[in-house]
Amino acid sequence: MEKIMHKPLLPRVSLSYRLLSWEFFLLLITAAVFVINSLASPYFLDPWNLSDASFNFVEKAIVALPVAMLIISREIDLSIASIIALASVAMGFVAQTGAGSPLIMLAGLGVGLLCGLINGLLVTRFQIPSIVVTIGTMSLFRGISYILLGDTVMKDYPQDFAYFGQGYVYAMFSFEFVLFLVLALVFYGLLHKTNFGRRTYAIGNNPTAAFYSGINVARHRLILFVLVGLVCGLAAVLLTSRLGSTRPTIALGWELSIITMVVLGGVNIMGGSGTIAGVFIAVFLMGLVTFGLGLINVPGIVMSIIIGGMLIGVIATPVLLKKFRNRKPAP
């Protein structure tokens, strides 16, 4: 085996090649979907239609960014949609008191952060696997929302609160969309250009070795859970503002579509690898597919079948290709 070491090596080349090709592959599919959509419907290429379509996925996409980091660190959060609901309920109550938009927003962000803190503390202090903790808090947060609201709807939001979810920064560029672009840049920097990001990869690949290298693994993961909670709070602000109302069923089932985006983006569900660029492209891919199917009036259930098939297909293709490429067993 010693001999392998001296050769100019394949693995490094193939790794960057694989990463490149993964994102390239996603881009290709996205472009294909774009072309198919524009052929399938004359309304697709209208900028305003595209802008409207973006509302259906940017809120999820914003949450996908910190969730990608969390999954890279070998943790997961299934309570994200429930956090959004609980944060929205909290905003509803604050709005009922006649408070202004800043305070409402603060309530949403605060509750999100608190929920993330609860998840994080349960995982890191008591060392319970995050999948267990967050399945629990998924029901817990959603349940509290139901108890607080029952069948009622809260819609006492002030006029200017609508801007977050319905406003436009410039022409057809919505506030939500621009915010997503900014956050994607921020998370790109955080994951790929900072010590924090490097530690995230190290922890995701080998938490023990990371700990033995002096990294405070528990605190790092706690911070990531809080970050996810906080961004869920932000998504709650956007969603609540866009809908103008809060029901306990708000954002129901979002955790799966958000995690789908992350996995589709090439983030290893076992932790340790993945990029923000991949997630960024995957978000658009999912958005375009959903929008295109909507334009040609595909019913929702069929749509979820297609999305599910696409996820499996996109993940399986590179694995299969790799299998065909090197059939010989490794030494």
Binding site: K193, R198, A202, N205, N206, Y212, S213, G214, I215, S273
Partner: peptide, 27 residues
């Protein structure tokens, strides 16, 4: 416990003292 197999050599060596190498937190 010793190494992160998936990371390159130089990142393994730098890991314990990222904050010293990159005092401002940027890699």
């Amino acid at each position: 416990q010793g190494v992160v197999l998936e990371l390159p050599i130089y990142q393994n060596i730098g890991l314990p003292q990222l904050s010293t190498i990159n005092a401002n937190g940027v890699l």
